[in-house]
Design a protein around this nucleic acid. Structure first.
Lengths: 267, 267
DNA sequence: CAGTGGTCTAGACCACTGG
DNA sequence: CAGTGGTCTAGACCACTGC
């Protein structure tokens, strides 16, 4: 059943000879066709037409659907793949990116062991300390674009590597989007937290910003991380976004860096 | 005068019907044409045929020179632009990227003021504490792929923002490549250090890796940064590379993060 | 206005995957 | 083997820059 597909056309088909294109002020902000296609594909992703892990239609099919050439679809997909929203696999097709993947696990975690690589270190142990619904503080509300006092879910947990507690973090999620999130759900789940968010709440984290500082361990934090109070810790504040730049998670972590470091690539 | 240009051709023109392509073992590692073009352009960049800031030949010219279509050159340039080696400017041409640019200054510095943006904060004050030639320690030699004991230039400096000393860093450079680098040269130069390296030593930093830790300020560092000894500081160790992944600088910085933070984007 | 990069097309062929 | 993404081409036209 062929549903109506929006047929993107460039600047309303440029009616013959209208030099100053209608009612706009200044430049009408030219948008290339492939950008429009990209936006349409993005809409399908947001709408859940294709879910994380799914195979999306082939370039040929999309070209037919949108009434453009394959090359144009290709360029749109190229950009979406560069943004890590899609994954191309030659010979198989194009898939919606997901956090459910062995080898791309911890995509957002930049902490690495000083010696050897992550795989050698083995998986992290996770202890959920708390998971409760609270009213958003002014700060949390501002970050998540909510009103102060709105309901948010707050999770506290500790991650340990080879038995050494290394990361202590709190995270806040909009209450509305994470209705069934409880301590039980969290402790029962084995994979990465963002994978859980994807499958259980339909929230896919796509991009994040982090702000790092060096801070001294408070008494409470020191106890959780088994270090002396006052020990320098790496403070990592993360804001994670879904499609369309909507912030969906605020995370505040304290990282021990005696045997690990935060790795970053500068291009 | 038309010098001989290497004419890239795909897998030796695939002689008619040779199913198991000659003497290779296993997969002969297929390399697309545009990658070969990319490599050729890279060679010209390394060789200094086009210097930072220069306009390179148009896509048409390059296509003619390499005997390929414009689209293929385009794809090669696309990747080089994505790697920040080239900069495209519509209507003008394609230029070799450079650190001599106002708005892309501090391309590798991720420290931002907590409130307001960098421009509002104004330019940093730089105090060179020392610049001397020393023998590479084992660590420095390993990082720079030299032999322990080889000559390296060591620079120490402090960067201050709005009068507050904020970054204390040491950096090591291979002595051979930085022959005329003295304290006088450094203090006389106004722009970013990587711009100086470009114009005076022909060394263009293209990529870098950083490792961050939280550490306590030593007595010496505390004095330089005007904080109490033991204050948590962000330790930033950077390895910067030229073309071809050759490491050319090791940098060890200590950042005050009481009024600044290290910002990072996760894709 | 000419020259540049940017978009779009149509078609041929190649490399990879899986049945 | 058919179907997918990946490469390459040739040509037309558009948008931007600067003379």
């Amino acid at each position: 059943m062929k549903t109506d597909q929006p047929t993107p056309r460039r600047q309303p088909s440029a009616p013959a000879d209208s030099p100053a294109s209608g009612g706009g002020v200044g430049t009408p902000a030219f948008s290339p066709l492939y950008q429009q296609i990209k936006a349409l594909i993005l809409q399908s992703l947001q709408a859940g037409e294709w879910k994380p892990g799914d195979l999306i239609p082939s370039e040929q099919e999309l070209a037919a659907r949108f009434k453009v050439s394959q090359g144009t679809v290709r360029k749109a997909i190229d950009e979406l793949a560069a943004d890590n929203l899609l994954v191309r696999r030659q010979g198989k097709g194009t898939f919606v990116a997901t956090h459910h993947e062995q080898h791309v696990q911890y995509r957002f975690l930049r902490l690495h062991p000083d010696h050897g690589d992550r795989d050698a270190e083995g998986p992290a142990t996770r202890d959920i300390l708390a998971c409760r619904r609270v009213r958003a503080s002014a700060e949390v509300a501002a970050a998540l674009q909510l009103r102060a006092g709105d309901s948010v879910v707050q999770v506290s947990r500790v991650l340990s590597f080879q038995g050494v507690p290394t990361i202590l973090e709190d995270l806040w999620l909009p209450g509305a989007a994470f209705k069934g999130l409880t301590l039980e759900v969290l402790t029962a789940y084995a994979g990465p937290m963002y994978a859980l968010f994807e499958s259980q709440f339909g929230v896919r984290m796509v991009r994040a910003e982090e702000r790092l500082k060096a801070v001294a361990a408070s008494e409470a934090a020191a106890q959780r991380l088994q270090v002396a109070a006052g020990t320098p810790l790496l403070s990592v504040e993360r804001l994670a976004y879904t499609y369309n730049g909507v912030p969906m998670e605020l995370r505040r972590g304290l990282y021990r860096t005696d045997r690990h470091h935060y790795r970053n690539e500068l291009g």
